[in-house]
Amino acid sequence: MFTGLVQTIGALTPLGPTHLRVEWSPQIEALGNLDEGDSVAVDGVCLTVESCLGHGFIATASPETLQRSTLGLLESGARVNLEDSLRVGSKIGGHFVTGHVDGLGYLESAIATATSWEIRFRVPDPTLARYIVPKGSIAVNGISLTVADCCDRGTWFTVAVIPVTYRETTLQDLQPGQAVNLEGDILGKYVEKFLRLGPAAATDAPDISMDFLTHHGYL
């Protein structure tokens, strides 16, 4: 589990079909206490540390992960966002991010304003687009962002990115048409399932309806 608050930028190098090496600057201490078996979000993809390096680690990405995310598209030395896993008692400044990427989005535009960067993404997959709602949470390459605006179907959305986030992440590297990893809000996925299955999913469960959610403060 992660929060979507990127700690540093590293460099990714493919090592054969499925193995990856991830490294970061020796001056960075944010990820300096990793052990084998730990989880790290790499551009929003949860990877397990198989072996530790001085300032990096080796991990394996499954064929499913490579197919669903950008990790299979990146060239040697590509810059990636890195976040260590959430520890019990740590502050949660973003939102709950699992590191299980739902699919790809594509940058359409990034426009600098007086106070932020207004960035627009396209989401061609409708099974992913349905989780994108105005003012909802979205993880873009592992970065916790708030949806500023989107169409009803969620096939495009915009975010307003403050300068420090733009400067300290790989958002600054993106070019129009470039793919990004997207993960929808996990809470929305569970709500959708309960609404779809209704009380038939569990005989002793309450009937989850729009009225029920409104009454309990979800809407």
Rank of each mutant, 00 (worst) to 15 (best):
L12D: 07
L12C: 13
L12H: 10
L12R: 09
L12T: 06
T13C: 05
T13K: 05
T13P: 03
P14F: 01
P14S: 03
P14K: 01
P14Q: 02
P14R: 02
P14N: 02
P14A: 02
L15A: 11
G16C: 06
G16A: 06
P17M: 08
P17G: 06
P17W: 13
P17C: 08
P17T: 10
P17F: 11
P17V: 11
T18E: 10
T18R: 15
T18V: 04
T18L: 06
T18G: 05
H19P: 00
L20I: 05
L20K: 14
L20W: 02
L20E: 05
R21I: 00
R21T: 06
R21M: 11
V22Y: 01
V22W: 00
E23A: 14
E23N: 13
W24F: 14
W24I: 04
W24K: 10
W24L: 04
S25A: 14
S25F: 03
S25H: 13
S25N: 15
P26H: 06
P26Y: 04
Q27T: 12
I28T: 14
I28Q: 14
I28W: 09
I28Y: 05
E29K: 15
E29V: 12
E29S: 14
E29G: 06
E29H: 15
E29P: 11
E29L: 12
A30Q: 14
A30F: 05
A30P: 10
A30M: 07
L31D: 08
L31G: 09
L31T: 11
L31M: 11
L31E: 08
L31I: 09
G32D: 09
G32S: 13
G32W: 14
G32H: 15
N33D: 10
N33Q: 13
N33K: 15
N33S: 07
N33P: 03
N33F: 11
L34S: 08
L34V: 08
D35A: 13
D35F: 08
E36C: 11
E36I: 13
E36N: 14
E36Y: 03
E36V: 14
G37Q: 08
G37A: 10
D38T: 12
D38H: 13
D38V: 09
S39G: 07
S39Y: 02
V40R: 03
A41Y: 01
A41C: 00
A41R: 01
V42K: 04
V42N: 03
V42I: 10
V42W: 00
D43Y: 06
D43K: 10
D43V: 11
D43S: 15
D43T: 15
G44E: 08
G44W: 04
V45Y: 00
V45P: 09
V45R: 09
V45L: 10
V45H: 07
V45W: 00
V45F: 03
C46N: 04
C46R: 02
C46L: 00
C46E: 02
C46M: 04
L47P: 07
L47M: 08
L47G: 11
L47F: 03
T48C: 02
T48G: 09
T48F: 01
T48M: 01
T48N: 03
T48W: 00
T48E: 03
V49R: 07
V49K: 08
V49W: 02
V49Q: 07
E50W: 00
E50S: 12
E50T: 07
S51E: 13
